[in-house]
Design a binder for these strands. Structure first.
Length: 223
DNA sequence: AGCTGATCATAT
DNA sequence: ATATGATCAGCT
């Protein structure tokens, strides 16, 4: 894989996004000396990682923003044939064994505060190779978005910190969901139940519903 | 057709 | 082992 130094400023980062906008994944993969998988079944994170490399993201799989020095997180948005988000967006792991923190100090808010969103064609009728990269959107959380996400987060954390995480389903949360995030449903982690006993539960992640990412796209384009 | 629960690969 | 990058695929 090619190593590119991290961008030194948001401006430089945006210039790099301009240089890849409109390329097909095959074209970008060739630049990065990568081979394109025939499908994403066994390469679910391939597109995101290709983009990370191309833009000089440095955090690897560490729990840090992708562009550490700039405090910017990178998220691809897979688009269906209508140009709408096809999937929810994974944000970060749900903390199962941490002392309660505020929304303002939470890891999820730090990540979402400044995000470089990069729409990518993902219509299943297009081969992975021919899918095109869109125009990036560098967005800060608006006060309204911050408030809405905080409400969801508070509801989730109330159940999580009182040992009732198993009562949470993906139906909860208007914009922010809690869903399984694991190798499979046998991969369990320790946590504490309502009576304070140590029990095992499925690891979970925070995900943004598509109704949130639709709004991000609307800020940029008139959908 | 959309959504929820399950799953796959890789880095550290 | 647990974080990251996500999409898959069966159910409603």
């Amino acid at each position: 894989m090619d190593h590119i130094s991290p961008p030194k400023s948001p401006h430089e980062l945006l210039e790099r996004t301009h240089s890849i906008a409109g390329l097909t994944l095959a074209e970008l993969a060739h630049r990065q000396q990568q081979t394109v998988p025939t499908n994403l079944l066994h390469a679910k994170g391939w597109v995101g990682q290709l983009i990370e490399q191309s833009l000089g993201a440095s955090a690897g799989s560490r729990a840090e923003p992708d562009f550490v020095e700039l405090g910017i997180e990178l998220k691809t948005i897979p688009l269906n044939a209508s140009g709408q988000p096809k999937e929810t967006t994974y944000v970060c792991t749900v903390p199962l064994n941490e002392v309660a923190t505020s929304w303002e100090n939470s890891w999820i808010r730090q990540k979402l505060n400044r995000v470089l969103w990069l729409p990518i064609e993902a219509d299943p009728d297009l081969s992975v190779s021919e899918r095109r990269i869109g125009s990036a959107i560098l967005a800060e959380l608006t006060p309204q978005q911050d408030h809405l996400l905080k409400q969801d987060w508070l509801e989730h954390m109330e159940l999580i910190t009182t040992g009732r995480i198993n009562e949470i389903s993906a139906h909860h949360g208007a914009y922010l969901q809690v869903r399984p995030k694991a190798a499979n449903n046998k991969a369990l982690r320790n946590t504490t139940d309502e009576e304070g006993q140590s029990v095992q539960t499925l690891p979970r992640g925070f995900y943004l519903r598509t109704n949130f990412t639709i709004e991000i796209l609307k800020q940029q384009y008139a959908l």
